[in-house]
Nucleic acid binder design. Structure first.
Lengths: 112, 112
DNA sequence: TTCACCTGTAAGAGTTTTCTTACACGTGAA
DNA sequence: TTCACGTGTAAGAAAACTCTTACAGGTGAA
């Protein structure tokens, strides 16, 4: 997605606006890893990491893929998606036009 | 601030990760305004707007200044600060190094 | 004085987020 | 079988966030 909608942007920002999730993305930026190991590296419980990874993946910031290791174990590897968001008063103003919130209705229709 | 610390970045992202606050910034991008009027324009209660403006100002995204109108009334005008944040796997990895969270101590010392 | 504006803040409810603990299922090796 | 390793998810408490309502102060004009 080159240009996220307002809602997508809010979701991405919310996902990154957390120290632990920021550290998760930072760690994955150094190379892909699977959940259990990543939990050990960062020093967090696996269920907690699992939850945060879900949030990051839902926002499209990381991508996970279930793979089978040589010895037949199911491993879920995560890696960072390649995003590039720029936050400026004008880029935000532009994104805000596609917010779905304004009282009712999913999203305002673009017109000409 | 050209390069926000990890904590500052998290605060800024958290401030922007909200539909209403995003709309506030977007509206102010079109020109400065005072609280009561901005509340009418956006269609939100004044106390609610007041709270969100506080959050945005604390994050350094908007700037407020109390001024006296011609007829002697105290008006608080807000305008957007000129920020330019770029979010990439590498910029985030860099910012994550200055996070204060890791268990203890305010912030890790930079070395070399 | 009363009204219409402006400002600020506090109390409370409802919702969301964050985190721990506990449980479930799968594999290969001892 | 039991252990060590991987996966996922559900239940509950504590904290943070969002929002409404209500109150308190200031000014100038009718």
């Amino acid at each position: 997605m080159t240009e996220p909608t307002g809602d997508q942007l809010v979701e991405a920002l919310a996902a990154l606006a957390n120290p632990l999730r920021l550290r998760i993305v930072a760690t994955l930026a150094g190379g892909r890893d699977y959940v259990s190991n990543l939990a050990r590296v960062i020093g967090v419980s696996r269920p907690l990491l699992h939850m945060h990874l879900q949030r990051l993946e839902a926002a499209g910031l990381v991508v996970g893929s279930l793979e089978l290791s040589e010895d037949g174990k199911a491993m879920k590897y995560f890696e960072v998606a390649d995003f590039d968001l720029r936050l400026t008063a004008s880029t935000l103003a532009r994104a805000a036009r596609t917010l779905s919130d304004p009282a009712k209705g999913p999203a305002p229709k673009e017109q000409s």
